[in-house]
Design a protein around this nucleic acid. Structure first.
Length: 416
RNA sequence: GUGGUCAUAGCUCAAUAGGUAGAGCACCAGGUUGUGAUCCUGGCGGUUGGGGGUUCAAGUCCCCUUGGCCACCCCA
């Protein structure tokens, strides 16, 4: 057993898996860049206050924060999510040109018990837009996420949609829920939840609570005219773009800052405990809560791990490793391989080589394992003649040939 | 955080009623002194997650601990 292993809930991501990560990020960057979004990179560590503002009734903040005091006595924390950091950055730098449309990718940290698709350090990709209240923006945001999934090849993704109404609507609804649930037959855990955040009771998966939740008042009964109109506009916009969705009145997302539009993408193949691939919503009060000007905002974050799991389950987005062009086999000491790989790489061809002056057989095995398209072989004869052997590695790619060493680059380029 | 379950070579797994750990894959080396992917032979490789206990004897029983997985919780 090794002396050290990754901490609980943490893990290494090694090749070839890392290639899939890069690919996923590249697809995401393509989608959002094409929509005018710029990348932001914010610190992993923030003043803990940045995160405590996102909700006193949120486990992410109250129980799972990696908070500590640094050597200067500052109370800081690893970020549990990125929306708060982006809003803090907005409040700090006050970009003048609105809307401010940004995207990001990176790790987040939550100290909860890990299981499949749920790690203490987990990556998200996401976008945030600040400064625009338009329902068309809600539609655009959702459409971007949908396009991302589509580009990956995922088909079993369900968009679940709801609106929490304006803050006053939400407050009125919460009050109504409190009254209703006070007399309802709830499980012990849900009664605890009720005291902290009545909305969250709707999320309970316990059978005990099913009847009570079924009969609970619906948020839609509390929408103001504006909220109802906004929600209707969002739905109409999605239909116009041919994006399927399901309105789920009981959808309440974890973070407390959401207002009006909220949405979640659920994978069809994952177990319910991890089926939330990603989600987001409108958070019109968050920038203000962080000391900035009153600014509407909306965004989403998508879990990279879970998205990759969903890709596995659907059998899409499989092998993304780029095959090598050339593997150089040098059985005359290794110096020739050093020169040849340098030349090949400079010419834009990918090239690897064998080391330790191993036998030709051993080096050919390496060439085979590397999945290179060609082996370039240099032995004593070739060295003396100023030639190289170019051997195609695929089964039906023809015979190897000996060519002048000076022709190697052009020869390979002709054959690719 | 609570509960359940599991933990044996790098990987996937075996090991009858407790008796001093095996296989496949992978890796390495050979198979007529230059050539891989098939095949054959051989080799390397484990103080059975860690610690303690019961026993003449424990991978196999008991306790503790660490970690994975699953459910709850929460969320991406």
């Amino acid at each position: 057993m090794p002396a050290f292993q990754t901490s609980p809930g943490m893990r290494d991501i090694l090749p070839p898996e890392t290639a899939r990560w890069r690919r996923l990020n590249a697809v995401f960057a393509d989608v959002v860049s094409a929509a005018g979004y710029g990348q932001v990179i914010t610190p992993l560590i923030e003043d803990v206050g940045v995160f405590t503002r996102i909700g006193e009734a949120t486990d992410v903040v109250t129980k799972e924060l990696y908070a500590f005091e640094d050597r200067g006595g500052r109370h800081v924390s690893l970020r549990p999510e990125l929306t708060a950091s982006v809003c803090r950055a907005f409040a700090q730098h006050r970009p003048a040109a609105l809307p401010w449309k940004v995207w990001y990718t990176g790790p987040n940290f939550r100290q909860e018990k890990a299981q499949r698709g749920r790690y203490r350090q987990f990556d998200q990709v996401g976008v945030e837009v600040l400064g625009v209240d338009d329902a068309h923006l809600d539609v655009e945001i959702i459409a971007l996420a949908a396009e991302f999934y589509q580009r990956l090849g995922l088909t079993q993704v369900t968009l679940v949609l709801n609106s929490l109404g304006e803050p006053e609507d939400r407050a009125a609804y919460v009050a109504a829920l409190e009254t209703y649930f006070a007399d309802a037959d709830l499980s012990e855990q849900s009664q605890t939840t009720l005291a902290k955040n009545p909305l969250r009771v709707l999320d309970s998966k316990r059978e005990h609570d099913a009847v009570a939740i079924e009969g609970a008042p619906q948020i839609s009964e509390f929408y103001s005219d504006d909220a109802a109109a906004h929600f209707a506009a969002v739905q109409a916009g999605l239909k116009r773009l041919g994006i399927d969705f399901v309105v789920e009145p009981k959808l309440v997302r974890g973070l407390d800052y959401y207002r009006r539009t909220i949405f979640e993408f659920q994978g069809g193949t994952l177990d319910s405990a991890q089926n939330a691939l990603g989600g987001g919503g409108r958070y019109d009060g968050l920038v203000e809560a962080l000391g900035g000007p009153a600014t509407p905002g909306i965004g989403f974050a998508l879990g990279v791990d879970r998205t990759l799991l969903a890709c596995d389950d659907e059998g899409v987005f499989g092998d993304v490793t780029r095959p090598l062009d050339v593997f150089v086999v040098d059985v005359v000491g290794g110096q020739e391989a050093a020169v040849l790989t340098a030349e090949l790489r400079a010419a834009g061809l990918s090239a690897d080589r064998g080391y330790d002056n191993r036998s030709m057989k051993a080096q050919m095995k390496l060439a085979n394992r590397s999945e290179a398209r060609f082996a370039v072989i240099v032995g004593a004869d070739e060295l003396a003649d100023g030639t190289v052997v170019v051997r195609p590695m695929a089964r039906d790619a023809g015979d190897q040939q000996t060519i002048p060493r000076t022709d190697l680059i052009s020869h390979l380029k002709d054959r690719s």
